[in-house]
Design a protein around this nucleic acid. Structure first.
Lengths: 343, 343
DNA sequence: ATGAAAGCGCTAACAG
DNA sequence: CTGTTAGCGCTTTCAT
């Protein structure tokens, strides 16, 4: 089985020679272009099979000057939301446009730049980027170089597919307020441009209700970071009775922090996450969360990308999906006694 | 912002012309090859910047006849294990070899073939495949066409990086037996070649202990499929007091099925999963599970791939990692009364 | 229906 | 140090 030498793979020329026709015919045959007699087509396919010929999509792209691969940039693949987006994009991609070049950055290492750059050098026809953390200006510049669809975040003048974060955050906070909470904290992610909608909507909703906002930024979007940050929140003298987090992972971290302190959810602490991940739905977790329809986001993004590719002149797409608050059992009215901490 | 026309991107020739040198120098400069004076280098970079020139990695590959992209085939990206493997592979890939072409199949739709084919046509230098469901022969054939490293599953004569499933399954079953269970069922995934190690190890361990194995195959590797299959298991007259599942998702599904029937875990049903996913670790879930070290699997696979690429003649790699049973609170001795069902 | 020839953007000897 | 000259595997006019 240790074959050792791997023969250079067959090319169109090899097939052409084998059959005794020109390369052109082979090319035509494989692309189903008209103008090849059925007999030659037969002969060509047979020879190709015999020789183990496979079209070289890379060379084809180069010759065609028309890039067929789509690049996908994902902020953090280990976050279920991004895996879902990828899954959605995948289903939207058609037969002929199925080369998906992936570029993932680990969350929050600021390596956006290199990741994107490699996509450009791979000459993808379009980049679907799920959560770029750069400034709007940078994103717009990038979109100048290669068509780009921004997922999860709207950017002016750039195709965008996202969820209405302001509405989602408002629904979450209003739910908590409706339950009777007044000390509602917000556990945000690290601060980045163009990623502050949820936090701002939280603050506004709080103020509109005459409540004082309290936002704490975690160091990362992960569960661990959420646990650490929440521990600080729960250690406060006047600790919050409810926390609304930027995403489910942070909420799950907060949940662990609460239990670590002997606090139960929702009895002692109400929790609202964001993403409605599969984990949130589990019996025993039952996390109230805002669903941003990640799979659909990916699907729509894929479709938008395909459209843009086929018509570069089309007007900028702006697809905003409606999020949905899913109420489960991690939220309840605050305990009558209020905070026990600091007593 | 609706720019409309997108100018054909600058090429080496453009840069060369701008500076007044030959293309060769530009090529050398960008690859850091020796033999370019610092002054020309300066001039070249400046001109390149001015022109917005980006190297075309695709054309470079073609010319170099040496494929630098690595293809990654993932069975099901929405399964945390595969996301972890991807994450591990990513970290192993070095700076210069960072073109990762992804190909995911949705679990169990038998679309392996097309997904792999597209990787071949993209002319990747090597394919890292996480859970190929084909027969060993097919995989070996494939490895003939393009270097391949099989992740998660050992294939004779092909670079393989996997976890010792036989040992993992044995540990799981023995744990259950040690607890006093005798009616231990196995919830397997769909039947595929080369994917039966856990199931066989389960059966063997049971028989070795004088117990009768009972295996049920779910229709898919998902939580939903697990829930449906487990519901059948739990509806039996002599229902099992413990279930060992092929993966955590199936276990989580079984868990839901149990609660739906009013059965509590671990009081009425002990559960052992496989993967030790982050979900398994959550307070309130506390699933006993076999850790196969998915991230590490990906990392090692990435390293093996790099090695293979740099030395095609190297002996076949066979890296087997030791799994680890993590005992949590989803397992306990069986209830004294035995099964209540059917009474 | 078929073929010849030019070229996509880049690398890689081989010469100066 | 710098330039010339062939390709890489494929598509695409333009002829025949």
């Amino acid at each position: 089985m240790v074959t050792g030498h791997r023969p250079r793979s067959a090319t169109q020329s090899d097939v052409a020679r084998e059959v005794g026709v020109s390369r052109t015919l082979v090319s035509f045959a494989f692309r189903g272009a008209p103008g090849v007699s059925n007999e030659t087509k037969q002969a060509i396919f047979e020879a190709a099979k015999r020789l183990g010929y496979r079209p070289n999509a890379v060379a084809a792209d180069l010759a065609r000057k028309h890039r067929s691969a789509v690049g996908l940039y994902l902020m953090d693949i280990r976050n279920e939301v991004y895996a879902d987006i990828l899954s959605g994009v995948r289903t939207a991609l058609t037969q002929d446009r199925n080369r998906l070049i992936l570029s993932v950055s680990r969350s929050v290492d600021g390596e956006d730049q290199g990741a994107l750059e490699s996509l450009i050098e791979a000459r993808v026809g379009i980049i679907i980027a799920a959560t770029l953390l750069d400034s709007d200006e940078r994103v717009q510049e990038l979109a100048q170089i290669v068509p780009l669809v921004s997922v999860t975040r709207p950017v002016d003048g750039v195709d965008s597919v996202y969820s209405d974060d302001a509405a989602g955050a408002r629904a979450a906070v209003e739910h908590l307020i409706g339950l009777g909470h007044t000390r509602i904290a917000h556990l945000a992610g690290p601060v980045y441009d163009g990623h502050t909608v949820r936090r701002q909507s939280y603050s506004k909703t709080m103020r509109d209700a005459g409540l004082k906002p309290l936002t704490l930024a975690a160091e990362d979007f992960t569960q661990d970071a959420g646990q650490r940050a929440a521990a600080r929140l729960l250690g406060m003298a006047d600790r919050p009775t409810a926390i609304f987090t930027h995403n489910d992972q942070l909420a799950l971290g907060a949940r662990e922090a609460a239990y670590a302190k002997g606090l139960a959810v929702p009895t002692d602490l109400s929790l609202v996450g964001y993403d409605n991940s599969r984990t949130a739905r589990l019996h025993g977790i039952d996390l109230t969360s805002v669903d941003l329809h990640a799979v659909e986001l990916g699907q729509v993004a894929g479709t938008v990308a395909l459209e843009r590719l086929s018509n570069p002149q089309a007007p900028i797409a702006d697809r905003r999906l409606k999020p949905r608050l899913v109420v489960r059992h991690s939220t309840a009215p605050p305990a009558p006694g209020g905070s026990r901490a600091g007593r």
